[in-house]
Amino acid sequence: MTTAPQTIGSRARPNPLAKLWGSLSLVFESRIGTIGFFMVAFWFALALISIVWTPYDPNASLFGQNLPPNAENWLGTDHLGRDLLSRLMQGTQVILVKTRLPNGWVIPIGVALWGVLGSLTLGTLLGLNAGYRGGWTDQIIMQIQDALIAFPRIVLYLVVIAAMGQGDLVVILAITLTGAPGVARLARSLALDIKTRDYIRAAETRGESPWYIMFVEILPNARGPLIVDAMLRVGYAIFAIGTLGFLGIGLPPPDPDWGNMVNEARRFIYTNPLAVLWPSLAIATLVIGLNLFADGLREETTRYQK
């Protein structure tokens, strides 16, 4: 499906998806990378399954309250008698595979991923310009970036949410804004490094435009570290969504939110500690999985660079 059709005779230009897959598949060379991949894949699979099927309606109080795990409810029930497994499964969706727009529409790809995509785009744009052009452009972009970094993230989240209210898009915006400076920093340092290479001189002496150089000559070579960084950022984003959910200002209902599940369950931690454990585990494993995946990827990409 995603493999490039091998044109015979003519030079096959590798399809970008196949290229991406080519670089991702490196990860299986590394053991921790493989473990990470399967941890992440597990949650993705669960998210996709939950779209078509969950054991029960995640928002319906169908059972006794705070039940321990049993044959009907594999993970038990919460304080309102809702099935925890169904809620846990449904909770993956907004993070990983869908985003709800204010007008009620649903678009694919989850909030965490959109957010990281946003910061990747914004950060790369700023960072490449700062690094490649240097001079005043660099000074100004770096200053703005410094200011953004100076905001403690949580304050930025709080302020953005206080200003704009709750919603998937707001969370995406908050993740984008908090992530962009870090990406910009990375992209800038990569651009600073790559721009010293002779092939950039060659492009310049060919009279190529700065945009061509930044996006055609530099960006493809900065791709590896940026992708690795993005993986880690997805982890941070999930972490942040959990935190916001716990504080009660995260993704809005009706979809269950892992952080919020922890918050609700902790009042009954005496009687039903497992209700706290499951969503916590979910966040932790997903974040760890992404970290391992990124580590594996980094290990392999740097190995191939040498």
Partner: peptide, 9 residues
Amino acid sequence: ATPEFVTGV
């Protein structure tokens, strides 16, 4: 990788 609120709880 474990959020603060989880650790705390």
